[in-house]
């Protein structure tokens, strides 16, 4: 049997792992045991850099990454996560329907095949201090994930001097006051227990969070076409379910946050425009520094405009 050893930082028992295990069981059954998927959850295989190294050495055949993490292989995979690129999830769904294939292809060209991309919903800024505008943000201690190029550029564009820390250190740092402001999805805030620390949230979709499940192209290409179809289908299905579950989790989490006394503050029109401008400047900077391809961005912007005009035309 071909064994795919997959690393993920998600702890065992999460929705994500349940779906992934189900997909693995289906793949094994439907390929009559020819393809086996084995997981190493909880980050035991190390961080993203270590996992990518191990994939090159053939110790691992795949991993689950955030868009930011996998962008060190190919930047365009992170394109949906450009800040303030999208206004709502329907818009993204419309764009992704056309664009996913091409985005995946660009990563596959680098030897890593994304079997699934799952949107984790929008990230919001949350803080232990009142957060009403960019001025408040600049005055607080803001977390930026290490190696997240887009977030770093975006903060640069809004003149925020963020504090880079690994994910694992964020909770303690919120506790100790080393950090005051973090960006995450509503369900992320609960999973990492940050919701017990933050009191204020900025009601503005910051960026679309992306989870990517990718495998090494070499063993993948060695599968028979029939087996490959099974693998593709089962993981596509799993990721659809994960995305649906994530959307629901986020909604419930929003309620939990509100119940926990977190107040969501909506920006006014000027403030909103200021953020949109940051988004545009970030896009330009990412294109300029080669992090994102211009042709891909243009296609996405065209689709977005198409969707918006369709919406406007609706009665």
């Amino acid at each position: 049997a071909t064994v795919f050893k997959i690393a993920t930082v998600a702890p065992d028992g999460t929705t994500w792992m349940k779906e992934m295990r189900e997909a693995a069981a289906n793949v094994k059954a439907q390929t009559e045991g020819r393809v086996e998927v084995k997981y190493f959850p909880g980050g035991v295989m190390g961080n993203d850099v270590a996992v990518l190294r191990k994939m090159k050495l053939g110790q691992l055949q795949g991993g689950a990454f955030t868009g930011g993490e996998i962008s060190q292989v190919q930047g365009d995979i992170q394109i949906y996560s450009l800040p303030f690129l999208f206004d709502d999830l329907n818009e993204i769904a419309y764009v992704r329907k056309t664009m996913d294939a091409e985005v995946k292809q660009r990563l596959a060209a680098k030897g890593i095949v994304p079997l699934g991309i799952a949107g984790g919903g929008f990230a919001y800024l949350m803080s232990t201090k009142p957060l009403r505008n960019q001025h408040d943000l600049r005055a607080s201690k803001v977390w930026v994930p290490q190696n997240d190029k887009i977030a770093q550029v975006a903060f640069e564009q809004s003149q925020v001097n963020p504090i880079p820390l690994p994910l694992g250190d964020v909770y303690t740092s919120l506790q100790t006051g080393l950090l005051e402001t973090v960006g995450t999805t509503t369900s992320g805030a609960i999973i990492f227990q940050w919701h017990t620390k933050v009191k204020y949230a900025f009601d503005l979709p910051l960026t679309y969070v992306l989870g990517v499940f990718a495998v090494d192209k070499r063993p993948y290409d060695k599968l028979s076409p029939a087996d490959r179809t099974v693998v593709d289908r089962e993981f596509a299905q799993a990721f659809q379910d994960i995305e649906l579950a994530a959307a629901k989790d986020n909604e419930n989490a929003w309620q939990t946050l509100v119940k926990n006394g977190v107040s969501f503050v909506k920006p006014d029109a000027t403030e909103h425009q200021a953020w949109i401008d940051v988004g545009v400047r970030t896009r330009d900077a990412m294109v300029a520094n080669g992090g994102i391809s211009k042709d891909l961005l243009d296609k996405i912007l065209a689709l977005k405009a198409e969707y918006q005009s369709q919406q406007a035309a609706k009665p």
Binding site: G46, N47, A50, L57, Q59
Partner: peptide, 16 residues
């Protein structure tokens, strides 16, 4: 049947 490089990859996690 793994390469010994694997050991260095793990050792390098000291810097992680």
């Amino acid at each position: 049947d793994y390469e010994s490089t694997v050991l260095a990859v793990e050792f390098n996690r000291l810097a992680e």
